[in-house]
Design a protein around this nucleic acid. Structure first.
Lengths: 347, 347
DNA sequence: TTGTAAGCGTTATCAG
DNA sequence: CTGATAACGCTTACAA
């Protein structure tokens, strides 16, 4: 008998529910539900009573229950290779911001460029009945493809763009980026141009870029030269590459395109320390336009991917698919963005 | 009559449920549930049948329904000021990784150093019945405090540490960081030491750092000098600061501590361009150890916050609180980490 | 070890 | 404009 008046419940969180609010406001619980989802359809008098009750009880709608009942949750899952990577962060940020502006929440996981980890992330997300899913790149394993295809929700592939694929894609052509860098150097008069791959296996987008570079080289009757460093750490890998390509006798690349700015920065610093004049003796082009790239001496010529735009446009396309926003006039499956070549001192 | 055999359902996602699996495997649905949550308690024979049925139907457990039934979801919300900021990304990454290793998912939102946005993010998260919540810093508005206090779930404050606060804290003392920088410069013989604030209002942690700096100055009978730039963009603000403090006649700070590495980098580049010798004429200390800091010329002496550790330890403390991991022996409310002063060329 | 019954807190449906 | 009722898909409590 020393129990408090309220009967101890065996289940439940103990927090106020929609029914508690309804009771206090003396309305039906469904009216409270409408108060939150379609405020316009509730009479002003009742709205006021409900508002008061909500405030008094500190009621917060249980979105888990709501999601179950309506079978459409308001979370959107995103799988990104590397959250702390310098380029994906902006995509996450703009994606999350655009979504939350429309009442959706971001569920995030990273794959570290591993198809297996990507699969398990997608599988875990699917259990949350997300309204949509975003993945990075167009390379997935069979199981992931199947999960994505049968999910029955909008799926967007970001950071890559390939004609003739079914899913919505928001990104740019890595092949075109490779071409862009090679053409730029060719136009400047360089002929012995090399390409340095990422030492992180699994970064298949970098392979596309080197293919683009190789295509331009062959187009001009030149021999492509792709170097793949073995060092794990990017700065070290860059150093290793420039030593192999431009330092020492017989090594005389006139210009080098790097798979990313980390590699380029490592090469740039190692090259200078070894007395190599950049860009006079060897020009350097990176990819990514990281925060440090304009600060290097010489500052780094690089190609800037549209990270922020990708996140925002992906979110907009999803919201259109969900009917939250009116469909745009253009074919929303095609979202080919351009990368900007930032001309600085290193090339 | 041309309808397919399966009756069209009015609600539901149409995907296989636990009951479909149970029917196919000829077991009770609760056994399927146990197959996923406590595999050890299901006999091998039935396990095999269930596994086959799961595979055939492509069944993925509905975590929304599970969360509702068990009243404890497996998502954990995190509010961070700036996802794309150079220092928080590592925290997010290590936090997310540690959680997902234990079957929890990360729900992410950003506050942009705005207490109001933080409040709305917390409110939105609460509706998802998260297992725990992580916020950044110890400064929240009243409403957020109340939401956090009455949530009835573990709450962790990261990136700051203040004795005598109730919530679990994982971070470092910004005051101590300010002291650390000032003592370092004092020990090197500098006396006219200034501090440059962040121009982003709302970054209250930087205020703690300047307080720490001021305390050390007064301790040595020196006058603290805190400069607050007005320029919005960090590089510009840094430039503005060094012009005000070290360039031109009568301006002769011997050393400057900056609220972050962005400001310091802006100052460093502007100073050099103006012919200022660093560190001979003016030493510079930053905060954050961003990716570019070791690449600058001169490389930037700075203080490195333990971003990765914060994320991982926060996750571990949460998992302990949830009973997923055994409680650590130490008082888990106290997680004071140290920041490392990275001595480079600029000071 | 397995199963039955009863919720979890919300919204779709349909009737006023 | 408002409300009663029955799902949504799972897990807890309890019984066998």
């Amino acid at each position: 008998m020393n129990e408090s008046a309220a009967p101890r419940k065996r289940r439940g969180s103990g927090r106020a529910t929609i029914h508690d609010v309804a009771r206090l406001a003396e309305v039906g619980s469904i009216t409270v539900s409408r108060y939150f989802t379609e405020p316009g359809r509730v009479a002003a008098k009742r709205s006021a009573r409900i508002a008061a009750a909500v405030k008094e009880l500190g009621y917060v709608p249980n979105l888990v229950a709501g999601g179950l009942a309506s079978s459409h949750g308001r979370v959107i899952g995103m799988v990104i290779p590397n959250i702390s990577g310098p380029i994906f962060a902006h995509t996450i940020q703009s994606f999350s911001d655009t979504l939350s502006r429309h009442g959706y929440q971001l569920l995030l996981a990273s794959s570290y460029f591993s198809a297996k980890q990507e699969e398990s992330a997608v599988r875990a997300f699917l259990g949350w009945k997300p309204a949509a899913l975003v993945v990075t790149g167009r390379f997935h394993n069979r199981a992931t493809e199947k999960l994505l295809n049968t999910a029955g929700i909008p799926v967007v592939e970001t950071w890559d763009y390939q004609p003739r694929r079914k899913p919505i894609q928001v990104g740019y052509s890595n092949h075109a980026v490779g071409e862009q860098a090679a053409r730029y150097l060719y136009a400047k008069g360089y002929r012995r141009i090399a390409f340095v791959q990422n030492s992180v296996a699994g970064d298949l987008s970098a392979v596309d870029r080197s293919d683009g570079y190789a295509a331009v080289m062959r187009e001009h009757g030149l021999e492509p030269r792709v170097y793949v460093p073995t060092a794990e750490a990017p700065f070290d890998a860059g150093k290793q590459a420039i030593e192999a390509l431009a330092l020492g006798r017989g090594k005389h690349a006139e210009a080098i395109i790097f798979a990313n700015d980390n590699l380029a920065a490592g090469a740039l610093l190692a090259g200078q320390r070894a007395g190599l004049k950049i860009p006079e003796q060897c020009a350097i082009v990176g990819f990514g336009d990281y925060a440090f790239s304009p600060l290097l001496l010489p500052s780094l010529t690089t190609i800037r991917p549209p990270g922020r735009e990708i996140g925002e446009i992906a979110a907009l396309r999803i919201l259109e698919q969900l009917g939250v926003l009116p469909a745009s006039t253009q074919d929303s499956r095609l979202n080919l963005l351009a990368c900007e070549l930032i001309e600085r001192e290193s090339a």
